[in-house]
Design a protein around this nucleic acid. Sequence first.
DNA 1: AATAAAAGTTAGCTGAGCCTAACTTGATTA
DNA 2: TAATCAAGTTAGGCTCAGCTAACTTTTATT
Lengths: 143, 143
Amino acid sequence: MKCSANSRSAPASSVAVEDYLERILELIDSKGYARVVDIAAGLKISQASVTNMVQRLDTDGLLKYEKYRGLVLTPAGETVARSITRRHQLLTDFLSLLGLDARVVEHDVEGMEHHISPPTVRAIESLTRLLRRRPALRAQLTK
Amino acid sequence: MKCSANSRSAPASSVAVEDYLERILELIDSKGYARVVDIAAGLKISQASVTNMVQRLDTDGLLKYEKYRGLVLTPAGETVARSITRRHQLLTDFLSLLGLDARVVEHDVEGMEHHISPPTVRAIESLTRLLRRRPALRAQLTK
DNA sequence: AATAAAAGTTAGCTGAGCCTAACTTGATTA
DNA sequence: TAATCAAGTTAGGCTCAGCTAACTTTTATT
């Protein structure tokens, strides 16, 4: 067969989907629930766009959504959300260790986090540990 | 004023625009010219899509395009193209030094290259030099 | 020079993901 | 409890960047 592994699944979570799930997980972890209005504010998009996407994420089995009532992540959705969150945290740690400005870090991480595959995540984790373990290395980075 | 620096410019080169310019530069550097059919093959999209985009890039001042005749990059286009090419090369070198498989490197670089800003480029260059200079460090990365 | 093949273009369509405006639902409070 | 206001939803529209099918132009072959 042409398609990989699971025959009836969502179309390999796009950048937008990952951004939504990441934000939703963060809201749930911090406030206990995720409202449309907060997701919209967090992603700096309109509430209408959020409603739309949330309906699609429900259809795709990434969350359970009840009109006007609220939403919860499904295990599948939480897996994606945790994965992107981990990549976000890792890249933030890594770039920060290189001495980059927090604003640059945030901006670049937001772009990069959607594009690193598991082996690369592991390799950067390894490198990050090394840089932490041996602060002297960091001193050699200037210029 | 609200918009930055130059009032009448292209909309801050999207991922797609960067992909086109990168491919065009590579074709010009290797064969001396860039044909629609080769750009299409390189990016794995239809010739029609290339024609469309090339017209837009002309409008945006990133290349000079003459129907049926061919195209050349403008200085502005070449600047963008060289910048993305540099980022591509740098990320490829960097991830390869971490011991990642060539296919993974290629895939991830293609995603990441559009999202690293100049300070991050410089920081990763610095780190890459360090890893090259001290091969023993690389040995400590496994696990 | 005629014709066949390759390259390039146009027209029209699609889907993702955003928007605004107008409407509905639910929560708050007078 | 009724009115108000915040939150949520729907409808319709836009841009970007891709597609196919049909057509035109250029190049190559005979």
